[in-house]
Design a protein around this nucleic acid. Structure first.
Length: 349
DNA sequence: CCGATTTGACCGAG
DNA sequence: CTCGGTCAAATCGG
């Protein structure tokens, strides 16, 4: 239940979000009109200020909400991806250059996506299997926690420079639950995940699937990029109603953020926000979190960046006022409905 | 032998 | 100084 303070916070937040959106759109317009760099900088500065305000508003509610507001339910952008985009953009911003230079140093401060998985009938392995291939690189006893935390990084870290990492720790409250913290997005396009299954340590894989080579062969799947490319423009983000509408093929849909997002309360067991529509009886789950799949504000509203344009375009200042990562498309093959999980809604300058 | 995990050491942030 | 995150040598197992 939301109290009056919560309502007030929400109103403030939404108003400030609307302002930030307006500024962002102005920024885009300035780009196209080839306005002087000073006005561009001024707008950028205002947007930064607006975001700062947003963080403070959220922060006055809870400190956790503060982080949630800055990077709501997010699988954060991979630092390497930033570096690549930076490089391809040629000149850009020193902030991203620093990200590139201080990859490991900044990782700690990167936004995280925390989820909680429960061990079901499939066992620990199935509960923790997210379809990606991880290599354990550390284990640590955490102060105040009964269970140690395991550190994993993507197996393609060296071969494909995929810097995605995750931490797995058994919950103190519920021994059947695991807290999983993801950092960075996969650039390896490996393992396309059926969300109901998921990631396990190599040790756990061995325990359950003795033939590792077979496992390795099976895990290489390609993301459904065709669907991503079919994602059409015509989106509209309504900051006042916290909704996102868009079309996919002939289907028009509207997503409304749940209370947990609007009220900035934390619900680790329900990491996906922006979901909508009825629960499909026959659904096809497509996780595209490993793909470049950002939405980008433009004059036309909120629209997706095509995979191919992602690297070169999405971090160039004029084109990237507001981004959102889609991590999950849920398509109901029976009813033609689908839902989108926006793991990220953030500003890039 | 090779690849993966374990584990103590190290480093940086707070 | 403490603690979380990472490194890398040692160890394990197929």
């Amino acid at each position: 239940m939301e109290n009056s303070t919560g309502c007030k916070h929400r109103s403030l937040l939404l108003a400030e979000l609307a302002r930030a959106q307006h500024l962002a759109l102005q920024l885009v317009a300035h780009r196209d009109q080839h306005s002087p760099i000073e006005s561009f900088k001024s707008l950028a500065s205002n947007i930064v200020s607006s975001i700062d305000k947003l963080i403070h508003i959220a922060g006055s509610s809870t400190s956790e909400a503060k982080q949630q507001l800055a990077f709501p339910n997010t699988v954060p952008e991979d630092p390497l991806r930033s570096a690549n985009k930076d490089a391809s953009a040629g000149n850009f911003d020193s902030v991203f250059q620093r990200n590139c230079n201080n990859l490991s140093k900044n990782r700690k401060t990167l936004p995280k996506k925390k989820i909680q998985v429960k061990v079901g009938s499939g066992g620990v392995a199935a509960a923790l299997d997210d379809g990606y291939s991880w290599r354990k690189y550390g284990n640590k006893n955490i102060l105040g926690s009964k269970h140690s935390r395991s550190y994993y990084r993507c197996r393609d870290r060296n071969t494909k420079s995929c810097f995605a990492t995750k931490q797995v720790q058994r919950s103190d409250e519920d021994p059947r639950a695991f807290d999983v913290i993801y950092q960075g997005t996969h650039t390896c396009c490996r393992g396309l995940p059926v969300p109901t299954t998921a990631s396990i340590s190599a040790q756990e894989r061995r325990q359950n699937q003795p033939d590792r080579r077979l496992q390795n062969d099976q895990r290489v799947q390609q993301p459904n990029k065709d669907l991503l490319m079919d994602f059409q423009t015509g989106m509209d983000l309504d900051a006042h109603e916290s909704s996102l509408s868009f079309r996919l093929g002939s289907v028009t849909a509207k997503a409304t953020m749940p209370e947990s997002v609007n009220g900035y309360s934390s619900q680790p067991s329900k990491p996906d926000n922006c979901c909508f529509g009825r629960s499909p009886s026959a659904s096809e789950l497509i996780d595209i979190s490993g793909s470049p799949n950002q939405l980008c504000f433009s004059e036309a509203g909120l629209e997706p960046l095509a995979s191919d344009s992602y690297v070169s375009d999405s971090l160039t200042p004029p084109n990237s006022a507001v981004d959102a990562d889609i991590t999950l498309l849920e398509f109901d093959t029976q009813f033609g409905e689908f839902s989108v999980s926006c793991s990220n809604l953030f500003y890039t300058m």
